[in-house]
């Protein structure tokens, strides 16, 4: 019975029902660490599964720095720059977080509040960047065609990838209309149809002799995608049955379907962690302002949410390496 009774005690630092503190850590901090450990294993599971899939398709996997080349408000080709900026934002918000913890040790309430505020802003900027990245990825920028057996073909001019819109002229000509609830079966919808038909793309390919077809297959000597001759390209194009623009869970213009799935899943799960981290940070921020921890006599709560926030940063370091760099 005694163990179930809340014992009034002045020693708030010890675990309930015992005098000793295992590892010299408070209950909350230790459990935060073990939560982080188990969450780290979850993320490792995702990244390891990504590794397995990539090894399975090692000769055809999309090359990440050909996919993530965009920076907001700037035109042109900047592989990885934006992801690097996002990494900086997250590392910097980690710094303001650890500065908040540091100020908490010195019981400087205002400093803690300001550093927490900066951390929250950093987190919001990161999530916003992530949303922009997703938007760009889903919209796509080049477009591709797919063969009946699911192989993806992209188009290049002078060795550089070009968009369908750069060489296919005019609007879709085969009269295919987007199926909506209004013009078709009221209980069915279809995803956005492509801007061009396959026949149009093939016609444009035949009319532009400088355009070549690029397959997913990686030339292992150069670590670049294979570019087909005009004749081989024609033969491949004859086997296509659909135009792919952008990315979703079923197909994407970058290559293997599971590449986009892993992108959505891993960065999405990380983004979810950032969002919940921001929410927890906001709660603690208001507690700081209200003076909760000043009354409590220590800012250990800030330290504990700090651990979670640093963990989110730590995961991003690995996602950055294994999704974008390697």
């Amino acid at each position: 019975m005694e163990a179930n009774i809340a014992v009034p005690t002045d020693k708030k630092d010890i675990w309930n029902g015992g005098g000793g503190k295992p590892f010299g850590a408070s209950y909350g901090k230790m459990m935060m660490w073990y939560f982080i450990l188990s969450d780290a294993l979850t993320f490792s599971g995702f990244l390891a599964a990504y590794g397995l899939t990539r090894f399975k398709f090692i000769d055809t996997w999309p090359i990440a720095d050909e996919v993530f080349t965009h920076v907001p408000f700037v035109h042109g080709d900047f592989p990885m720059i934006y992801v690097a900026i996002m990494t900086f934002i997250l590392i910097f918000s980690s710094v303001t977080m650890v500065l908040a913890v540091d100020a908490g040790h010195q019981m400087k309430k205002n400093k803690v509040a300001w550093y927490m505020f900066a951390t929250i802003i950093g987190g919001i900027i990161f999530v916003g960047s992530q949303a922009w990245e997703w938007n760009t990825f889903i919209k796509g920028s080049y477009g591709a065609v797919k063969t009946t057996e699911g192989k993806l073909l992209q188009f290049v001019k002078d060795g550089k990838q070009i968009a369908l819109a750069d060489f296919v002229i005019g609007n879709r000509t085969d009269g295919r209309v987007q199926h909506t609830k209004k013009n078709g079966l009221w209980f069915e919808e279809e995803g956005t149809i492509a801007n061009y038909s396959v026949a149009q793309v093939i016609q444009a390919y035949n009319a532009n002799p400088e355009i070549q077809v690029r397959t997913e297959l990686i030339d292992l000597d150069k670590k670049q995608k294979t570019i087909l001759s005009r004749e081989a390209g024609s033969a491949m194009l004859a086997r296509t049955d659909r135009v792919v623009e952008g990315a979703n869970l079923e197909e994407n213009e970058y290559g293997n379907t599971i590449f986009a799935d892993a992108f959505f899943f891993i960065t999405g799960f990380h983004g979810f962690h950032v969002v919940s981290g921001i929410a927890i940070n906001i709660i603690i921020f208001f507690n700081v302002i209200l003076g909760t921890y000043e009354k409590r006599g220590h800012y250990e709560m800030v330290e504990k949410v700090g651990l979670y926030w640093h963990f989110v940063d730590l995961v991003w370091v690995f996602v950055f390496t294994f999704f974008y760099l390697v």
Binding site: A48, A49, G51, L52, F55, K56, I58, D59
Partner: peptide
């Protein structure tokens, strides 16, 4: 384990 398995499937 995962990477060995992935290599084997490839």
């Amino acid at each position: 384990l995962f990477l060995f398995e992935g290599g084997y499937i490839f």
